[in-house]
Computed example of a mutant assay.
Amino acid sequence: MSAEVPNKDFPWWLVVLGATGLWAVYEVWASPAYSEVMAGLVKGIWVTIGVTLVAYVLACLMGLGLAMAGLSRFRVLRQAARLWIEVIRGVPIMVLLLYVAFVVAPGMVWAWNQVAAFVGFDPIRPRDFPLLARAVMALTLAYSAFLAEIFRAGLQSVDKGQSEAAMSLGLNGWQRFRHVVFPQAFRVILPPLGNDFVAMVKDSSLVSILGVADITQIGKVMAAGNFRYFETYNMVAMIYLVMTISLSLLLRRFERGMKVVEK
């Protein structure tokens, strides 16, 4: 006889994290060392949020395009989408960041200069391609492959009869996708999309290897200058925890709200 698992446990883990957060707030208020660290890290918070939002939106658009290409009736599109997804998913994000920053971006600058010389525009230098833009590009490419698989699974979860019924009503391909297929697929893909968004918040810390002034990079520079490694990395970890746990709770609440509306 298997033991019954309670449906709802009291979230003691959230109580522990809340108490830890209150301790961190108190330390920032009462300790000059923590106050100094937090004042420096605030600038990096906005960079982290900006990088995450821009890269995630672009990755969603690219991932949706890849998913639709992978489900296309044209073999070339299907094979090209699968090639991209398998290659990108097989390369570590840190390696992809370095490759985009120091191989792809200079190559794009060279290609632009070739076109500029032909049409009479001024050439640009590799340093004119900001590291922040390179970091956003790399995260976009990295997550596009993972999001493409999420979109593909969601689109395939919709019964073909739904699309056929919409076709019989005279809807064209775009109207069927917009009004019939995607709204049903969205209920399936929302949880994994939310999980990947939270994961990107954490993976955005990798842009610090390019010198982008996000939370992690500012923390490394501050710790190397004032030797307050304990206080600095405590606050860095706490900021990421607050961001990711808050997003996770909001996404869970949104999912529950959607289920109530469906009922």
Rank of each mutant, 00 (worst) to 15 (best):
E4H: 14
P6T: 01
N7K: 14
N7I: 12
D9I: 15
L22Y: 10
L22H: 13
W23Y: 15
A24L: 15
S31N: 01
P32T: 06
A33L: 14
S35R: 15
E36A: 14
G40H: 12
L41W: 02
G44T: 03
G44F: 00
V57Y: 09
C60E: 08
G63D: 00
L64E: 10
Q79V: 11
A81D: 03
A81E: 02
L83W: 13
I88M: 09
R89Q: 02
G90L: 01
L97F: 01
G107K: 07
M108F: 06
M108G: 03
V109E: 01
W110M: 12
F121W: 07
P123A: 03
P126E: 02
L131T: 15
L132A: 04
A133W: 08
Y143R: 07
A148E: 07
S157Q: 09
A166K: 07
L169K: 08
W174F: 10
W174E: 08
F177K: 05
A185V: 11
V188T: 13
I189C: 03
L190Q: 05
D203P: 04
S208L: 04
V212I: 08
V212M: 04
V212W: 00
V212N: 01
I218S: 08
A224V: 02
A224M: 10
F230D: 12
E231G: 12
M235N: 06
V236E: 02
I239L: 12
S246V: 15
R256K: 14
K259A: 11
